[in-house]
């Protein structure tokens, strides 16, 4: 009987010459094991971060989706499938519509104000200060963003006090009438917006500074030699080139603004149990979700509202993405 020898019998040296070569099949098996080992190490390294993400993000999100179609209470064991009833209840509530209206108003004012102010400050910092001196100003602009929202909002409550606040002092000192600010249904939300802008601008200024730093100085110089004045250089050269940054800021600000909670809660009397006033003029979507869940304990309704808020933010982001594909210039 003859045997066909598929693998060489004599031990071979590997290409490196430091270990005998293995038969092909064994070599494949060894390589496969190595690859599996590499993957396991990779997953192992990701595990701590992923666990936090799964436990505190994916599981609650899935649970929220689940209870929005059920009647569910935190202390109640009776969970009942109710279909779309939670959503029908919400759509019948005037306060829900008012909260959406407030959120839309808040977002629609905040987004352009954020972009204009952050870009303006970034341009000022870039043009007016050298890299070394600018560092101090950049830090100064960024500092409010890293201070606790609640602490600074309490200070803003003092500033907006209609009787002894700094805001009214400044208004009256230049001959303008004093405003009711947080006690006025008309001015309460604008007061919160001012606080939010002050608090969040630093982050967006830094993002814009990053975007501006990527606009080659050569282009500005050649445009100025071409005879373009500052506004035309900004409008025709800088603005199109930083459009990806602007798009990023708009998306980020939309998400953050629609979800704004802490400053509204703190400034409109949350610590005293009456946030969202006066007369629901500052009751935004996020605040109403909080109140529905943790004050009135209608968790399923709050879950349904969260789902709607998620849908709104997702839609806005997709619309922005659709728009960006047409107007944003990516190099």
């Amino acid at each position: 009987m003859t045997a066909t020898i598929a693998e060489p019998l004599a031990p071979q040296r590997s290409e490196r010459g430091d270990e005998p070569a293995l038969p092909t099949r064994l070599r494949h098996l060894r390589d496969q094991l190595r690859r599996v080992g590499d993957r396991l190490v990779g997953y192992g390294l990701m595990l701590p971060a992923m666990s936090v993400f799964v436990v505190f993000f994916y599981v609650p999100a899935a649970f929220l989706l689940y209870i929005s179609f059920f009647h569910w209470g935190i202390l109640s064991s009776a969970t009942q499938f109710v279909g779309l009833r939670n959503f029908r209840i919400l759509f019948a509530q005037p306060l829900f519509w008012r909260s959406l209206e407030n959120s839309a108003y808040y977002t629609l004012v905040m987004i352009p104000a954020t972009v204009l102010l952050a870009l303006g400050i970034a341009l000022l910092l870039r043009e007016a200060f050298s890299a070394r001196r600018g560092g101090v100003w950049r830090a100064a602009v960024f500092l409010p963003h890293v201070t606790p929202v609640v602490a600074t909002s309490i200070i803003w409550v003092w500033i907006f006090n209609p009787h002894f606040g700094l805001a009214n002092y400044l208004l009256t000192s230049i001959g303008l009438p004093a405003l009711g600010w947080l006690e006025s249904t008309r001015w309460a939300l604008p007061a919160v917006m001012i606080d939010s802008l002050w608090h969040s601008l630093g982050l967006y200024v830094i993002i814009f500074l990053g975007g501006l730093s990527r606009v080659p100085r050569d282009l500005i110089e050649v445009a100025s030699l071409d005879g373009a004045r500052s506004y035309r250089i900004f409008r025709r050269i800088v603005w199109p080139l930083i459009s990806p940054t602007t798009f990023f800021v708009v998306v980020l600000a939309t998400v953050n603004t629609w979800q704004a909670f802490s400053q509204i809660y703190t400034m409109t009397g949350g610590p005293h149990g009456g946030a969202g006033g006066p007369a629901f003029s500052t009751t935004t979507d996020a605040l109403l979700i909080y109140q529905t869940a943790f004050i009135y304990e209608h968790f399923s309704l709050a879950a349904a509202m969260s789902l709607i808020m998620f849908g709104i933010i997702l839609t806005l982001t997709l619309v922005q993405k659709w728009l960006s594909d047409r107007i944003v210039f990516y190099r």
């Binding site: 080659p216 050569d218 282009l219 050649v222 445009a223 071409d226 025709r236 210039f329």
Partner: peptide, 28 residues
């Protein structure tokens, strides 16, 4: 009234060739 060519060309990347050439004329 100087025209300058930069080392890395410094062409406006978001404009067409025509618009690049016309930018200076339109600015004036």
């Amino acid at each position: 009234n100087v025209g300058m060519v930069f080392q890395n060309y410094a062409l406006y990347p978001h404009m067409t060739v025509f618009d690049n050439l016309a930018f200076g004329l339109r600015s004036r």
